[in-house]
Computed example of a mutant assay.
Amino acid sequence: MLPAILFRQVHRPLGAGALHLGRSTALVHVFGVGGSSFVNCLNRYAAASGFIRISFLDINQRRNWDVARLRLHTDDKKHSLHKRTIQGRDLWQGVIDKQRAGFIERRNILVDDIREARHLVQERIRKKVGEITEERENIMTIPNMLTIGRAILSPYIGYVIVQGDFNMAMSLLAVAGISDLLDGQIARRWPSQATKAGSFLDPMADKFLIAILVVSLNHGALLPIWLTGIVLSRDIFLLAAGSAIRYISLPPPKTISRYLDVTHVTAQLEPTMISKVNTGVQLATIGISLGAPIWNYLDHPVLHCLWYMTAATTLAAALSYIVNRQKTYKIIQKKP
């Protein structure tokens, strides 16, 4: 809206120039053109123009009003923009906080699941370890004492044979044979005297005795070297197989002390029938060969037949352990 401007005409005649100037001045003030200097000039020469200005301050007031409205509009826009910025920032912060809270919650759930799984695994490991039987038994039984005594006596019998005291050696061999028969009979008649460790100790003691005797007889030229080699090879094979079975059947931790602990039973040996026959044939051959210098039948054909029979049964026993390896031993485990 244009500012209201009132004019009053002076009662005096005006010329054409003055009338033209008054019209121009009026148009200038009506359309808001010009400044304060121009207005002052008009006021100064108002008598010449024939018009008197009532209020020329409305132009400046309108301009001040427009600047104030523009500033107010700008402030409103700035305030609105700032408000929307804060709202957007709060919105994004809320989204970020929500995502962070969800991530933390999922992480906590995952950590709890991992801890629970680890706890379950530890419990299962402890349960499995508890299920493993470290079966310990009393090995101080009569059959085992007889077996250990026979093993201790074996080196002395070999020493006596090397010294040429065949009569003493025959007596000690008879004692060893009797102890071998007694420990088996006692273990079968009285189950409380039977031990799983004895299933390993008894054949090992027999092999130890036979190995020492064949070496001693070969040293005294009472057994051929080829038969001694066959018997020793079979015994070394059985000793290596027994050691491997012991290591395989031993539950963790596999230490040397636990490996050598005979009270910690992990497997039971079941000798084959041909092996039992071979043990009897070997002991008979050793006894008859040891009696040859006593009763003077050295290099008798019967001795040669016994040697070949011993070699054949020895090889057959070794082969039976290889063929029936799944039946010759049993790993002991805890029953559920």
Rank of each mutant, 00 (worst) to 15 (best):
Y159P: 00
V121E: 09
A312C: 03
L81I: 08
L238M: 06
L120F: 12
L110R: 04
Q93H: 12
N218C: 06
F166G: 00
N64E: 14
T263F: 02
P191R: 08
T228V: 01
I52S: 13
R44M: 08
R71N: 15
K128V: 14
A176R: 14
E105V: 02
S55I: 09
V129H: 11
I142D: 05
P271A: 06
D299S: 11
P293L: 10
N60Y: 14
Q282T: 09
K78H: 06
I104W: 02
T228G: 00
T141G: 11
V160K: 03
I274F: 14
L213V: 04
L120H: 12
M145E: 02
Q99D: 04
I148N: 00
N64L: 12
G17F: 05
K127W: 13
A292W: 01
I104N: 10
H264N: 15
L223C: 07
P224A: 05
L19N: 04
R53Y: 02
L209M: 15
M1R: 05
D113V: 03
Y156P: 00
T85A: 13
G229Q: 05
K254L: 10
H264C: 10
N324P: 03
M273P: 11
T74F: 05
N324V: 08
L81M: 14
R100A: 10
A117Q: 06
I210G: 04
M1S: 07
S320C: 05
G291L: 14
P336V: 03
F7E: 05
E131M: 13
I142H: 10
P253E: 11
L319V: 09
T266P: 03
A292M: 04
I157T: 11
C305I: 03
I157Q: 00
G149V: 03
N167F: 10
K327M: 11
Y321W: 13
E135A: 09
G32D: 11
G34R: 01
R71E: 10
G242E: 10
S199F: 04
S257P: 09
G35Q: 05
L173E: 12
S179A: 15
H73N: 04
R150H: 07
A317V: 10
P155A: 01
Y297I: 15
A16I: 02
D113I: 13
T255M: 09
A197C: 12
D206N: 05
I245Q: 06
T285M: 13
P3E: 14
A284L: 13
F56T: 07
A46N: 09
V33T: 03
I178S: 02
V30S: 06
V10T: 11
R258Y: 01
I288H: 08
I294M: 08
I212C: 06
H304Y: 04
F200N: 02
L303E: 08
R150T: 12
A4R: 15
Q99P: 02
N218G: 11
I236F: 01
L298V: 04
A187H: 09
E131K: 12
K207R: 13
I161W: 00
L223P: 00
S154T: 07
T141K: 01
S192E: 08
P251N: 07
